[in-house]
Design a protein around this nucleic acid. Structure first.
Ligand SMILES: [Mn+2]
Ligand SMILES: [Mn+2]
Ligand SMILES: [Zn+2]
Ligand SMILES: [Zn+2]
Lengths: 143, 143
DNA sequence: TTGAAATTGATAAACCGTCTCAATAAAAGA
DNA sequence: TCTTTTATTGAGACGGTTTATCAATTTCAA
């Protein structure tokens, strides 16, 4: 009856290719992760403490990093902490972040991405990844 | 005979407005900072150890953060460390970063900035700041 | 020159994420 | 299934970076 069948498949395929094992913890953490857009290891730790009080913080970190390698998540260093971004069904995207209330809006913009390529090639670079964050005030926070 | 007269003025004005004092350390650190495009506190600490072996690391951190408040620097959390970006005469700009050799190229692109505004207003946001980093390989690093 | 107030340097502490390692669990083989 | 191998886990130690603390010192306005 578990949801996230497709993503669980992605994880299992990655595990298979790397001689890794499918564990109760990995299943539990993936289920919780896929319900979020972004989450920190610490947040997930507290959230899962109810379901399994013995789940260690190190396991959360290890598992979220595993999800990154499997292409389900993407780590973003955000201020002092690391946010794990759920990219399982969305793929790449960038973020608008309200400095008032902390709200995060995801967006994609092909024109910007194209101009990025232009800037890169003009400087002799080949882009591998990028990071774009717009900080400002959302409509409610401006009153 | 010191250079950086203009920036020293900016600093002094900020100090004056906030009841802060102009010290030998602040002058020394600003002079060193303005010779760099980007630098970490640790790098500056080692660099200045020759001129003043007693300059404390905490003072470097405090002073670089002060420069941010005065609008001379901008902190960017970069991996595990904080880079202080010299924006005194360049103003805002973004970065191309080579994942091979670590080289950083600064750039400005009005078209991208304009599209960012568009994205923001379409989502009801007013942009205060943004952060755009393009990661890839520079021409030498691609062989 | 004096004195209030800010600053400094040394170091402790906080914080975040990784590492270590003995115990446990998974899965492959018999 | 039972056995054996190998990966994983959880607890806590650890390491790197930045901030907090505080007594001594320096700045600067009066
Ligand atoms: Mn996102
Ligand atoms: Mn720069
Ligand atoms: Zn808001
Ligand atoms: Zn390079």
């Amino acid at each position: 009856m578990s949801k996230h069948v497709k993503e669980m498949g992605v994880l299992k395929e990655h595990l298979g290719k790397h001689q890794l094992k499918f564990t109760r913890q990995r299943e539990l953490i993936l289920d919780a992760f896929l319900k979020q857009e972004h989450i920190t290891a610490e947040e997930m730790y507290h959230q899962l403490a109810r379901k399994d009080p013995h789940l260690g913080l190190a396991t959360i970190y290890r598992t979220l990093n595993l999800f990154c390698e499997a292409g389900l998540a993407q780590a973003r260093h955000f201020g002092t902490q690391t946010q794990y971004d759920n990219i399982s069904h969305k793929g790449h995207h960038d973020h608008l972040i309200c400095t008032g209330c902390g709200k995060i809006v995801e967006f994609e913009n092909c024109d910007i991405e194209r101009l990025q390529e232009e800037v890169a090639s003009r400087n002799g670079f080949t882009i591998q990844t990028h990071r774009l964050e717009l900080y400002g005030l959302c409509s409610p926070c401006r009153q």
